[in-house]
Simulated scan of single mutants.
Amino acid sequence: MPTTTIAPTIEEITPAWLSEALGRPVSTVTSTPVGTGQMAVCHRLTLDGGETLLAKLPAADPAYRAMVAGTYYSEVRFYAEIADTVAIRVPACSLAVGSPVTGDFTLLLEDLAPAEPGEQLAGCTPDQARDAVVNLAGLHGPRWCDPSLLDTDGFALSTPEEAALLSELLAPATETFIEGLGELVSPEDRDTLRAAVDVIERWALARTERFGLVHGDYRLDNMMFAPGGGVAALDWQTLSVGLPARDLSFFVGTSLGPGTRRATERDLVAAYHAALVGHGVTSYSLEECWDDYRFAMLQGPLISVFGCAYGTRTERGDRMFATMVARSCAAVRDLGTLALVR
């Protein structure tokens, strides 16, 4: 890691601090808050001559910072150690420093304006979906089945104990989700969610012969779309190792309405697969990729249920998670995902 002192608050990001962090003189800096800052806070920094950067910093509460220190540090480590080893488009990073103990961290990232964030509730166009899945292949392809990933601290495939715990936690979370969202969840989707609980332990342990880096929350709200095309992925707090198709299924299954998904998913999976091949992945056919896509579709209900059940409830959040579940549960049924796991 760089030796620059961590600046966990915006007040500590002074011209003198930036001069050390960037390795060049900075004489002035102004800051403007960006976004809502529920888990972390973000500020746009304007430096000499109008240059802009984004500073991503921890939440103000020290107790909360300590509680999510590992999550924060995962993103710091991605930019400091992993981003240069993969080909996915992300904001260029000028500085990534943090503490895995206190949760203090500072990221200085490229300002992607005029790119705009995706909108989970509205969904995206087929062209945007294609850009997103091709970009995703840049995360998975370069380190496909790379054994050194499993030697990296904090990265490991699911163990039987972890899979059992996942199943144990998902059952009450599913009932909390169904009860809390009420009529926003259709009877058909309730049945699909409960059926997913019955197979999630087997699902979590399956197909370990194919593994790679998994973003874990690759969805529209965590992406920036450029006006002329192209996408960059944000928010690397949930990075792990697992079946790569989980990211693919999660994105397609939660980002497109059922009709659009049915009409485009074959082409999207083919575009993703072709990009994987372009990154050097071999001995992985399009048919295997399609089968993994079908199998991995439980990622959508899984992440959505946990995100809603254990997160801070908001009106928009409820509608967003209900929409993600409706879209991904429809995909689970259309693709026969549960039968693949049983």
Rank of each mutant, 00 (worst) to 15 (best):
80 A>N: 10
42 C>F: 09
35 G>K: 13
102 T>N: 13
50 G>V: 10
85 T>E: 15
43 H>K: 11
37 G>F: 03
75 E>S: 01
28 T>A: 15
113 A>W: 12
29 V>E: 03
97 V>N: 10
85 T>G: 10
51 E>S: 09
95 L>G: 08
69 A>E: 06
42 C>N: 13
109 L>P: 08
34 V>A: 02
105 F>Y: 15
115 A>Q: 05
103 G>P: 08
68 V>R: 07
106 T>N: 03
40 A>D: 15
117 P>W: 12
100 P>R: 12
66 A>K: 14
28 T>K: 04
70 G>W: 04
87 A>Y: 02
87 A>H: 06
115 A>F: 06
36 T>Y: 00
116 E>C: 01
61 D>H: 06
58 P>R: 12
58 P>M: 07
32 T>V: 09
89 R>W: 07
78 F>H: 04
65 R>S: 04
79 Y>K: 11
51 E>V: 13
110 E>H: 05
103 G>W: 06
111 D>S: 08
73 Y>H: 15
36 T>H: 10
82 I>C: 05
85 T>N: 11
65 R>P: 01
114 P>W: 01
114 P>T: 01
88 I>P: 03
30 T>V: 09
49 G>C: 14
112 L>W: 07
34 V>Q: 05
114 P>Q: 00
95 L>R: 14
71 T>G: 07
74 S>D: 03
113 A>H: 09
38 Q>W: 08
100 P>F: 00
54 L>A: 11
46 T>V: 14
38 Q>K: 03
66 A>H: 15
28 T>C: 12
46 T>Y: 05
92 A>G: 14
42 C>I: 15
53 L>S: 04
112 L>G: 01
104 D>H: 09
85 T>I: 01
57 L>G: 05
42 C>L: 14
117 P>F: 09
74 S>R: 02
112 L>R: 03
114 P>V: 05
70 G>V: 07
29 V>S: 04
85 T>K: 15
53 L>I: 14
100 P>Q: 08
75 E>N: 02
87 A>N: 10
120 Q>Y: 08
90 V>L: 01
38 Q>L: 15
65 R>A: 02
97 V>L: 06
40 A>S: 15
37 G>K: 01
39 M>L: 10
102 T>I: 07
67 M>N: 12
49 G>V: 15
101 V>Y: 13
58 P>N: 07
47 L>I: 14
68 V>D: 02
111 D>K: 10
37 G>M: 14
48 D>P: 08
34 V>H: 06
64 Y>F: 13
28 T>N: 09
66 A>W: 06
94 S>P: 14
109 L>R: 01
86 V>I: 11
57 L>C: 02
99 S>W: 07
70 G>Y: 11
52 T>W: 10
71 T>V: 11
45 L>W: 08
87 A>P: 01
45 L>I: 08
